[in-house]
């Protein structure tokens, strides 16, 4: 891990991973969308509305995955002063916030025909909304200081504290009697979902993960470049 704290080495790794991430994203999203929109069977209760699930569920997974990634790299940044981890956390936040927003929007589009309402205040929905606010808080706190490194450290602490919310989201459907259905894919006794629906779902999840990696690499490069530009500006100002 400490080998990757060197930006040059990290960028080299990024350049290596990027074409693969792009290929996985495009391939999985294309086949996944084809299967989920045309090939998978309509649900016997929900009919075609079930197809929203193929966009919604992976987005919700990614929302939690991105937050976990953000919290872990923030912790690494706080503990070891790992600069690249700091930048990973910063670059992940807007991507994760977008996934969370997508999950909330698609969920409410699904909820209107199925539950008869755009929104209910059950534990799952509320905790995901809190997750969204945590992302926003992280982004705002990051930019709230004149000294950028202070903003980064303060935001890292917030990310670590907010990690409390992740298990609450995961288990909210088990702990409380929610309107949101409990987990049906990631379970101890195997997925309770037919393969004709599971395969497109997993393809979409792969595509989303690839997309995250791809966007992360793009954003990381932008971060490195803006750091370089800032350093050059400071050097010129000092001259």
């Amino acid at each position: 891990m400490h080998r990757l704290a060197n930006p040059t080495r990290f960028l080299r790794l990024c350049n290596m991973v990027k074409p693969w991430a792009m290929a996985i994203t495009l391939l999985c999203l294309a086949t996944g969308l084809y299967f989920s929109l045309f090939k998978s069977p309509p649900d016997y209760q929900q009919s075609d509305t079930v197809r929203i699930m193929y966009v919604h569920v992976p987005a919700a997974w990614m929302a939690m995955f991105c937050y976990s990634a953000m919290a872990l790299s923030s912790a690494a940044a706080l503990i070891w002063g790992h600069l690249v981890a700091q930048l990973i956390a910063k670059a992940t936040a807007p991507i994760g916030a977008s996934f969370t927003f997508l999950a909330l929007i698609t969920g409410s589009l699904w909820g209107k025909p199925m539950w008869g309402t755009w929104w209910v205040w059950d534990a799952r929905l509320t905790s995901v909304l809190i997750l969204f606010f945590l992302y926003l808080g992280f982004i705002v706190l990051h930019d709230a200081f004149d000294d950028t490194s202070r903003g980064a450290r303060a935001a890292s602490i917030l990310a670590v504290v907010g990690a409390v919310n992740v298990p609450i989201i995961k288990f909210s459907v088990d702990w409380w009697n929610t309107l949101h259905q409990p987990a049906s894919v990631v379970k101890l006794d195997g997925p309770a979902i037919h393969s004709s629906m599971l395969v497109p779902l997993l393809l979409m999840a792969c595509g989303y993960t690839g997309f995250y990696l791809w966007m992360l690499i793009v954003r990381m490069r932008a971060e490195f470049n803006s750091n370089k530009i800032r350093a050059i500006r400071i050097r010129q100002a000092n001259r």
């Binding site: 926003l136 706190l141 709230a144 917030l158």
Partner: peptide, 12 residues
């Protein structure tokens, strides 16, 4: 020491 810390703290 943040800018507009009063608003920021409510948001967080």
């Amino acid at each position: 020491g943040a800018r507009r810390s009063g608003v920021l703290i409510s948001l967080l």
